[in-house]
């Protein structure tokens, strides 16, 4: 029945598989080996050094410093972004006019590249010409005049996280709105007959029926919290911030590899990152598992 099937299968898969093997599988596979070597890129001989890279990582304060910032992002970003996204989605579905305007405005930052957003926010945080200090001065908080938000170790990472929230909230709002619009009206009508308030309906109807979307958002944001490379690079001018106060694992990995030439050591960090992302995905899926609601 399927004449010519085999020729088609081979010819259609050959090129995609070849490209994918060369530029994706081969690098990931070699990374598993590089991570156990000492290699500075230039010398032809790569020397295996067993678990030494990982032992060194364990004692590397800069690595723990970077990891702690990813940890903070992991604790802060998913709850804040999901709470704001759900809140706006809830308001948005209360039958408002101008909904198209709000939707477009809220979503737009997500369309822009992280680099453009980070440069824009560097303007906002600029000590003298920046929007933030201008605004704070205008409402009378003059103690912030020329405060360097990105130049102070106490505020630099918070400033990065605020930007991430600003950029992502609209995206999750749109995602949640799409989910909410798929919930049949009957559920709300039934709840109304029982005399439920908007608030009760939100917690007892909307959130349970939206749970799969919320889970996806949690996993997505958790994995995103392990990255933040472009945001931190642009906003700290590639330094990781004053006293590395905004350094994250990907920026530390990148400078270890491409500035210091410690390729084996950097790849070991990559492997740790892979393991963390795996654990995070499994844990957040397990942790959020509930019985599925069919509708």
């Amino acid at each position: 029945m399927n004449r010519g099937k085999n020729g088609l299968i081979v010819s259609f898969l050959a090129l995609p598989l070849a490209l994918y093997t060369l530029f994706v599988l081969l690098p990931y596979f070699s990374a598993m080996i590089f991570a156990f070597t000492r290699w500075s890129g230039l010398s032809a001989n790569i020397r295996f050094n067993g678990a030494n890279n990982f032992i060194k990582l364990y004692a590397d304060e800069k690595f723990w410093n970077a990891l702690s910032h990813n940890g903070i992002a992991l604790v802060v970003l998913p709850p804040v972004i999901i709470a704001l996204g759900l809140f706006f989605a809830f308001l948005f579905t209360q039958g408002i006019s101008l909904s198209r305007f709000f939707r477009i405005a809220f979503f737009f930052p997500q369309v822009m590249s992280v680099v453009v957003v980070a440069v824009l926010w560097s303007f906002i945080y600029h000590p003298t010409i920046g929007l933030l200090n201008g605004f704070l001065g205008a409402i009378g908080l003059t103690q912030f005049a020329s405060f360097p938000w990105l130049g102070d170790r106490g505020t630099v990472f918070g400033a990065v996280l605020a930007m991430v929230v600003w950029q992502s909230v609209g995206f999750y709002m749109v995602l949640f709105v799409a989910g909410m619009q798929g919930i049949p009206n009957d559920y709300y009508e039934a709840a109304e007959i029982d005399g439920a308030s908007s608030w009760v309906k939100f917690w007892n109807v909307t959130v349970p029926l939206l749970w799969d979307t919320i889970r996806t958002a949690i996993v997505f944001l958790a994995i995103g919290a392990m990255d933040l490379f472009a945001q931190v690079t642009v906003m700290t001018n590639g330094t990781g911030g004053p006293s590395r106060a905004a350094d994250v694992v990907p920026t530390y990995l990148y400078s270890t590899a491409f500035s210091q030439g410690q390729f084996g050591y950097a790849t070991a960090m990559g492997l740790v990152l892979l393991i963390l992302v795996f654990i995070l995905s499994v844990v957040s899926l397990r942790f959020t598992a509930r019985e599925a609601f069919e509708y």
């Binding site: 898969l13 081969l26 070699s30 990374a31 990255d227 590899a257 491409f258 960090m269 990559g270």
Partner: peptide, 27 residues
């Protein structure tokens, strides 16, 4: 093959970055 394609979706890009640099250099 389907599972192999899954790897590119779940592995962090940063793990591949260093080898990728050298693969493109070799080629």
């Amino acid at each position: 093959i389907t599972y192999l394609f899954l790897i590119g979706m779940i592995f962090p890009l940063f793990l591949a970055l260093v080898p990728l640099y050298f693969v493109t250099q070799k080629l």
